[in-house]
Design a protein around this nucleic acid. Sequence first.
RNA 1: GGGGGAUUAGCUCAGUUGGUUAGAGCGCCUGCUUCACACGCAGGAGGCCGACAGUUCGAGUCUGUCAUCUCCCA
Length: 891
Amino acid sequence: MDKHYDPGKIENKWYEWWEQNGHFHSEPSEGGEKFSVVIPPPNVTGILHMGHALNNTVQDVLVRWKRMQGYNVLWVPGTDHAGIATQNVVEKSLRAEGKTRTEVGRERFLERVWQWRGEYGGTIVRQLRKLGASCDWQRERFTMDEGLSAAVTEVFCRLYDEDLIYRGNYIVNWCPRCHTALSDEESEHQDENGRLWHIRYPVKGGGELVVATTRPETMLGDTAVAVNPEDERYRDMIGRKVLLPLTDREITIIADDYVDREFGTGVVKMTPAHDPNDFQVGKRHNLEFLNVMNGDGTMNESAGRYAGMDRFECRKQVVADLDKQGLLVRIDEHRHAVGHCYRCDTVVEPRLSQQWFVRMKPLAQPALEAVHSGKIKFSPQRWEKTYFEWLENIRDWCISRQIWWGHRIPVYTCADCHLEWAARATPGCCPQCESLTITQDEDVLDTWFSSWLWPFSTLGWPEKSAELDFYYPTNDLVTAPEIIFFWVARMIMAGLKFMGDIPFENVYLHGTVRDDQGRKMSKSLGNSIDPLDIIEQYSADALRFSLMQITSTGMDVYVNTEKFEIGRNFATKIWNAARFMRMQMGDECDIDTQATAVGKLNLETALLRPDDCHMLAMCNRYIVDITGHLEKYRLQDGALAIYDFIWNQFCDWYLEYAKLDLNGDDDQQRRRQVLVIMNYVFAQALKLLHPYMPFLTEELWHQMEYGTVDETVMKAPWPTSFNNDQMTEWGLSDAVVTYVDSKRELITAGRALRSDYNIAPSKFTDFIIEAVDHEVAGELQNDIECLKRMLRAERVEITVGGQRAMPGTLGKLGTIYLPLEGLVDINAERERVRNEIEKNRGFLKTVHSKLGNERFVNNAPAEVVEQQRERKVELEQTIARLDKLLISFGG
RNA sequence: GGGGGAUUAGCUCAGUUGGUUAGAGCGCCUGCUUCACACGCAGGAGGCCGACAGUUCGAGUCUGUCAUCUCCCA
């Protein structure tokens, strides 16, 4: 094996091998129990960022684990067509050529988009491979594929025919830059420092009203002024006219409950075509809906002499003009939430326009029940509350977009008989009057209108398919909480509505990846860490493992580049452990590593020593623990456990212990047995680690020959613990684990003594251990070689009872002494022992107070009380031993 | 304004149904080129678990109030 691990080459090699050998692919016909996951489709315009890395690592860990457990696993990958984002990208490239999309025309433009998608659209899909994602690429889907488009049309037609889709004139969130309507979810609110302009509106026939507004330019579209009917101050104003400044219009003063008497002056200007609240009031009062803006955010002809100005320019001008006329009363600083386009961050303009909507209430009800009943579980569960909150207050979904890239709305209108209908296939003529003059709606659908079908459209729906029968409903959905509204909730609604069943059983929500100051990673802040840079620098395994190890369930994770050293160092450690084993095994080793890897161990019970038993017992324990963590989605705990298992248990202790037999060549049987145990444990460790570090484990699986050259660790059976017979035969008892742990405690204490007395690590020295009794003395005597090696001692003398005037430390098995003739600092030792005694007396005191408390003895569970009693005895013995030690120092 | 989350070692965080002496990684200090690994080994220092009150035999853990930070919704 190479001295250094070179992940770059190895990672590419194995990924190609996996993919070419179809290890990611599965078929319903293979049967078995299924485990299916659909990827949250990234935008086709997207490039891999840390959020994707986290999201897909989580999925890959789950998927690889289940695959090893023998499930028929399917992970469906793909991308969505990202209507607005993709159109923006292509429009930009057109602009670079000095063209606009309207010049090019719809058809040619769409050709350009497809062309772009073919060239650049696969970026993220390639990047996911770098990460090691074991998706079934043969089943990759795209929301604009024929099949998925058919699903969209089918769904639209069904909802349309059921009157769950309707068209109407409403205030929507409008992005003047993208030139389209957005759904409520796509308008992101940000708190901004704005202003509240107080404007004087002269009342016809004398007097005035002062209104306050954050958007003064909209006053050009005012069609009323409103006060609260209960408001004494303005009661006599109701019904009178106001002369709207900067225009020649007269508008009426109306009364409506909506007006908050406490806010501002208690007078509100009414702009029904530019504000959602005013819109509602306008409907109630039959006000005129005067639209003063164009789709691009400039003022239109209704704005009079302001026509053609940009909305923000117009705002300045309006304010200046009002000021000039003495109509500006004052300006307050005002902090408020302003909607921004989630695609381009432009300030969203509430705008009255004709759009298509889905009635959500009827769809929301079953979706609420699915989670209430526990059929679908969120993890962490607290997110269910967010989900309920949204669904209970759901509003209709604006699904039409005034762009070209996307699924065109399949609604047709006859020019002759004015019939409007939705059709699954492009109709040749009007089904009512057979007229040929029919036109299709110009708008396309929200991208999420195809994404919400993803769990079943990717499996072939609306066609019947074996995949749909076998893999639906899927098991887990892994995503970020910010997508609950956009996607999770809507998928649940769609699944229940069109499949008659939930789309997935578990929703696992992970946190957001942030920089080490807790800020979201963004291009504009320049604080992004590119996963590909990390892979380049540290390896994909390191990226994956580090992310998993530092991300606790459902919490945001703060990363900086150094964090990835965790995974890199771990990989190097494992590589070197494997290298060590290979060196020890040499070329002529006759160990059947393949049988060993699957747990067929021909162990000579008589040759087993306590550390061997400890290692095997711990291996068992970690298998159970790590499996349990994965079952509970506790991926961080799983990562920490495997790290501890390999690094601390295996490398630091067992491997060092094993050198005793490996480096001495006097007992070939022992040597062989130790190698068997090491290989068994290492093979289990590789399997447990594989979901987290797929590449390194595959490489070592082959290097160590744990399978045939054609076999992959991906399909190796997930480790299981030994059965009771084996446990008994080999003596893998709790007692032996406790003994070895206590022995290590003694060794650590001995090393500390060496360190305290500045004995050079290279220097051999002597130790004396006073065992607590003869039995323990016997055990330690049998372990003398281990003690000598681990303590770097020339001689370790085991005796029973008695105290010595030497530096010593108490352990459960006895006291370890460092014999130092004449060099002992008696005062320092005395001080040390006194401190120990004080500490233990402190503990004893709390134990006493507990046991002396009748209510504790009566109320606490018997085992807890018993525990305290044992502890009391233990502490008393310890203190007695320490007292004697102190006396031996003359204290 | 409504809701969620966080507050534990210098830093980033674990701590699952309350129960021995509160853990990890990084950083820090000391020593070490010890025959897999300096991306390493050995040893060590460092914590009134945000504040106050309550429940309990017992609270980092449960309840309430407050403070600070953060996210989502309006």
